[in-house]
């Protein structure tokens, strides 16, 4: 279970990236955040953002048409 869950379902670009960036500022280093999105663009955008910001993606899966990303704050 992630320390914080961020719901970005039914939101289009750029909202999933904006939501995860807001979420990450609310947690401490070493804590995890789970983002749930339905925007297919987030499949490329979230890993790109996480890589650039240096926060590793611990887990990524698709469930019932929703994309889940578990990111650990560096």
């Amino acid at each position: 279970m992630a320390d914080l869950t961020v719901d970005a379902r039914n939101l289009q670009c750029p909202m999933p990236v904006l939501k995860i960036s807001q979420g990450i500022s609310q947690i401490e280093s070493g804590q995890t955040l789970e983002l749930i999105a339905t925007d297919r663009g987030s499949l490329s955008d979230i890993p790109a953002w996480a890589k650039d910001m240096g926060h590793p993606i611990k887990e990524q899966f698709e469930q019932e048409g929703e994309f889940h990303f578990v990111v650990e704050k560096s």
Binding site: C13, P14, V17, I20, S21, Q22, W49, D52, M53
Partner: peptide, 11 residues
Amino acid sequence: MILATTGAAYG
């Protein structure tokens, strides 16, 4: 505005 907010989200 999409690029401006996303740039801010990139710190």
